[in-house]
Nucleic acid binder design. Structure first.
Lengths: 328, 328
DNA sequence: ATGAAAGCGCTAACAT
DNA sequence: ATGTTAGCGCTTTCAT
């Protein structure tokens, strides 16, 4: 029965008539304790409802089997998908995860990392906010792996990105194949991913010997209102018959404008596939990001780094490939 | 400069030529230390890059200003919206939050709560998984507030729900006003919310003197395939001209079926409004849940309970009202 | 205004 | 196979 007072190792030791050390060993399933004793103690712990004080344990061992996951926008389906994969893989490898959302705010990001370090969390998976955070200062040699975005101090940490340029190139190529002749683009200046996707757009045009017109390239902060303005500018003033948006947030804003103005006959392409694209009147060709692979590999690599199981002296930059979902 | 070795209070004390106690007081901005000394110590801490060991502090004080947030599905936009509101309000009130996702798994939920308790987290906001978790045993008198779903041991904890029945009634009334004469419903048996929404559906029909036909009422686990089967059954075999889905997941699956079969002329209603409903050919009338209010009030109430600032002896069940977004 | 000392619960040498 | 002991970094009486 659960007594009111909290059960500690000392308490168990007293009741079992053994030392605290033996209890600790029994609870940690050490081979250095007699099976009978071990069993007895474990039983007792269960009956008394013993809960280890993880604080004390971490403090003593100077580590907590916990991975800090720092993401920049919890409302973005891309990130939640990655987070779920991270959680799954971490659980498999017997790690805990703590997720903190920074809302693209570098200050919050710094605080979050410092806070977790205060809790002895010493492995991180980070989707960096804007450039401007000095991870050297913050992390030192703490194992960390960056996802989705190239961090400020790249080259010093493992980084896991998708092949943004290639994905963008594929989408734009598909739009061209569908007959689009003048394709506008709206990208994000917030992350490195946005710039790479823009580069991919240019590559596709060049491959198809289409002149790049800087007037139909828009790249800035993702702000609903601004994206809507860009959209009408591109599709009406600039007479584009195709539009490539660099992520799901931009796509949403652009679609709002397209719907409001009742524009039709367009070829749309975007990063971040979503199930509801199937329901739209306009066909959307979309890049499906490998969220599960990204989350899974991030955890695996982090854990490998810790155990030093494979010799990974040099931090690596890994590119995952993307999949194209065509609709027309 | 950031030395390699970690800076502790002892280190600061040595360097400042004062006792550890004084350093601790200075760092905590206690009035019991001379302003000059305080300032000097705080400066030193900054220069040396001192980071408090939160583990040690929590262990000593037996509390951590951290709220554990247990949600059942991080991929559900409803929950992520609530989480963001929780984070915002918590930050304002100077609390930390730790979010853990249980994926509707009661085992994971139990583990998560125990784990956090091990870290001295002693206030929780919980979106319960299926009934079957005994919160008395798990939480005891630990302050906790339940959101979205009525927990097993209701009456013992504060609970914050939306007015599910009323929301459902409003949607169904709207569908009837739009001319639907035979409205099927698909709800979820996973949570208490699903049952309440079903009750609201029945109320609306009764108010409008429409006979309730049990053949067009479907309620079960939310499984993509099953929902799709229900959908075609209702809309084709049962010849419904309207459909009410009880949450965003069900709606997504139903829309997949509707799109695949190219069904038209339907009146659709659902819980959980989404921006992209504006882009659909079929008009969707949707209940907008008060996610911000729910998150904000959950935190406020939890903190009030802790401080005992207002006398809230009895746990309360609070219902938040919803908003209807009509489209036709 | 400051210091000395105890102790939170746990684990890991180092005994026995 | 088990016990003794020290100590992680911090806060907090109780002295001075």
């Amino acid at each position: 029965m659960a007594d009111n007072k909290k059960v500690t190792i000392r308490e168990l030791a007293k009741r079992a008539g053994v030392s605290e050390a033996t209890v600790s060993r029994a609870l940690n399933d050490s081979p250095r304790v007699k099976p009978a004793t071990k069993h007895k103690i474990q039983q007792l712990a269960k009956t008394l409802g013993y809960r280890p004080n993880l604080l004390a344990r971490s403090m003593r061992t100077n580590q907590s089997k916990t991975i800090g996951v720092i993401i920049s926008n919890i409302a973005n389906p891309f990130f939640t998908a990655v987070v779920r994969a991270i959680e799954d893989e971490a659980a498999t490898l017997n790690y805990r995860t703590i997720v903190i959302n920074t809302d693209e705010n570098p200050g919050t990001e710094r605080q979050a990392i410092e806070m977790l370090q205060g809790y002895m969390v010493s492995r991180f998976i980070i989707a960096s906010t804007r450039r401007g955070v000095d991870y050297h200062l913050l992390l030192g040699r703490t194992p960390a792996i960056f996802i989705d975005r190239l961090p400020n101090n790249n080259g010093d940490y493992d980084t896991l990105l998708v092949n943004n340029a290639d994905g963008a190139k594929q989408v734009v190529n598909a739009l061209i194949a569908q007959g689009a002749t003048r394709i506008g683009v709206i990208s994000s200046s917030v992350s490195t991913a946005g710039q790479e996707r823009l580069a991919g757009y240019r590559m596709a045009l060049q491959e198809n010997r289409i002149a790049v017109d800087e007037n139909i390239i828009k790249c800035s902060d993702v702000q609903m209102r601004r994206v809507r303005r860009y959209t009408s500018n591109l599709l009406i003033n600039q007479a584009c018959d195709g539009l490539f948006t660099a992520d799901n947030e931009i796509f949403l804003a652009a679609m709002a404008e397209i719907t409001a103005r009742n524009l039709t006959g367009l070829k749309l392409g975007t990063f971040d596939n979503a199930p509801w694209f199937d329901f739209l009147a306009l066909p959307v060709t979309a890049v499906q990001q490998p969220t599960v692979e990204m989350g899974t590999r991030a955890v695996q690599r982090l854990v490998a780094r810790i155990n030093g199981s494979d010799k990974l002296d040099e931090p690596e930059l890994i590119r995952l490939s993307v999949k194209l979902v065509k609709r027309n």
